[in-house]
Design a protein around this nucleic acid. Structure first.
Lengths: 144, 144
DNA sequence: GTAGTTGCAAACGCTTTGCGGCATA
DNA sequence: TATGCCGCAAAGCGTTTGCAACTAC
């Protein structure tokens, strides 16, 4: 449960208040859907903010390591980042435009089932990830 | 719904009956868990079967394209392949040893919920993927 | 001043491609 | 003998690393 306010990120993590960190903070503060490094580069380019991609990668790793971001790697799509590890781990993925839409799911649904699975397979379950693949509203309309 | 018998793969796909194709057929015929290119190279090495990795990649793509294999790319682990696209899409992933264990789940559980999600987000759901992360039996014992 | 941060170039690992040669049907 | 398949080398792509320079505190 962190604050996505860029300045608060720095005070929480006791790290320096740099241009890149602030810029990334603003992006994740204002972006609802998980984004890729390419997306970030695009945004920075449109803002005329010149920054080396190495620094972006490094900062994303840093923020992920410090539980500010959540790294998502899923079937076929490129690595995405979203704010805060405590977010729901369920997504809708549009297989036409590769958009990821985070959704909230009542995890109660899995309770009974995951207990069964855990026992049957002798497997300790720590977390789960549920993804629905299909077509988003826009792509349905565009007949893409 | 294909037959995993190597010779039947060839007759179904009307493709040539090559050493590599037969060898991969046998591997997937006998392997229950999804495996990586590195795993396959390992197996071939142990069998003293010399084959170029390019050919392995090409053959896996070919079999995937022809619905004989299922390509799995998930959170943090390397790409894996398993026989047949129609297999259940639910897995247990051990975050210690990276093993993937396919499991059967009663998809009825999701029926109501996925209908709700579909309506709420104006999203046509085609398929879903459910993954449980945790520790397998072996890794629990090894205190790794 | 000094750690934390950056840019650049180079390396990395996994995967794909181009092409000439070989083997299966 | 004619495609389909193969090996090899090289390139592609996203990501990481090493190092020297810089800058926030």
């Amino acid at each position: 449960m962190f604050d996505s306010d860029p300045t608060k990120i720095c005070s929480t993590l006791k790290c320096r208040h740099t241009k890149l960190r602030m810029a990334l903070g603003h992006i994740f503060h204002n972006t609802k859907t998980p984004i890729s490094v390419a997306d970030i580069q695009q945004i920075f380019k449109s803002q005329n903010f010149k920054i080396n991609k190495t620094s972006i990668y490094r900062e994303l790793k840093f923020l992920t390591k410090n539980y500010m971001l959540n790294e998502i790697q899923l079937d076929g799509i490129s690595t995405r980042y979203e704010f805060n590890k405590t977010n729901p781990k369920s997504y809708l993925i549009c297989t036409k435009c590769d958009q990821i839409i985070p959704i909230e799911i009542d995890n109660q649904i899995f309770e009974t089932e995951s207990q069964k699975i855990s026992k049957k397979n002798n497997f300790i379950i720590n977390r789960h990830s549920l993804i629905f693949f299909g077509h988003c509203h826009k792509c349905q309309q565009n007949h893409l």
